[in-house]
């Protein structure tokens, strides 16, 4: 692919590959032995969109993330990241991905800087450029003063924010966040969500945000609902609400998954 092929311009910034979906899944299935975890999943996310992957615990969200991030191989179906097949061109696909896993993945015995520098090296970014970017990103989250502190000394919310800027270090075009706000207080949750939304708005980054917290869905989002390994809804929020014959996304989700309606912020 040419270096400038398919670029578009948003607010003076060039963005990649506008013509191809940021993420495209076609008939993806996955089983753990005889237990079907994902069954014939197909959807796509356009560049610059914020997509929320909604599902109860056990719906298949983490399996889906593991397939997209190539931790598991896709045996049935295809996954493309900006047109690159994750199985055949995993390197090309992975360099476009920034991933925040559900479980904490910072090395607690290393400092914030050492963790970030390690990640930068795993993307082939030299130390000078990495340090510059680390400083800038840490400053943006008001954590410059924690640069040389062990990750162990950070709070849960701070660890999560460092993990998010780590996922952004190599300037990915698609950001995957698996239950990124789980275990955080309301303020931290709101801050993280708001910052990720700013990234989509200002940088044109595509985001796949997996959650089971319905109040994290905004009216402009694309919503993908997984239930017991099956895709039961996919589209703009208002479409999903309309198709479910509901008034709110909360009610739509409850109807679609067959659970009792929840109050906003309540865990399904």
């Amino acid at each position: 692919m040419g270096t400038n092929a398919g670029l578009r311009n948003i607010e003076g910034r060039t963005l990649p590959e506008a013509d191809v979906p940021a993420l495209q899944l076609t008939s993806v299935s996955y089983a753990y032995g005889k237990r079907q975890a994902l069954d014939d999943i197909s959807f796509s996310i356009a560049p610059g969109r914020f997509a929320v992957l909604l599902g109860l615990n056990g719906a298949g969200k983490t399996t889906l993330f593991s397939l997209i991030s190539h931790l598991f191989a896709t045996r049935q179906g295809n996954i493309h990241v900006f047109g690159h097949d994750i199985n055949r061109k995993s390197g090309d696909a992975l360099r476009r991905l920034g991933i925040v896993f559900q479980a904490r993945t910072l090395d607690l015995d290393l400092s914030v800087h050492q963790n970030l520098a390690y990640h930068a090296s795993l993307h082939g970014i030299g130390s000078r450029q990495a340090n510059q970017r680390i400083n800038e990103l840490l400053m943006s989250i008001d954590m410059s003063d924690r640069l040389h502190e062990k990750a162990r000394s950070l709070s849960g919310g701070q660890i999560r924010r460092v993990e998010i800027i780590r996922a952004l270090l190599h300037q990915p075009s698609l950001l995957l966040l698996d239950e990124a706000t789980v275990g955080l207080d309301i303020k931290s949750r709101a801050t993280i969500l708001s910052d990720i939304r700013k990234l989509v708005q200002n940088e044109g980054i595509s985001v796949l945000w997996a959650t089971h917290l319905i109040d994290e869905v905004s009216h402009a989002d694309q919503v993908i609902v997984l239930d017991r390994g099956k895709l039961i809804a996919n589209g703009p929020v208002h479409d999903v609400i309309k198709r479910a014959g509901a008034e709110t996304i909360n009610e739509a989700f409850s109807r679609l998954t067959g659970i009792v309606a929840l109050t906003p912020g309540q865990k399904p």
């Binding site: 990649p16 360099r95 970017r133 008001d142 952004l168 300037q171 075009s173």
Partner: peptide, 19 residues
């Protein structure tokens, strides 16, 4: 957290050449 978009002139991942 104010704005975690970066200004360091690192090429967007998709614009980078192979390693």
């Amino acid at each position: 957290m104010t704005d975690i978009a970066g200004n360091v002139p690192l090429p967007r991942s998709s614009a980078r050449k192979r390693f």
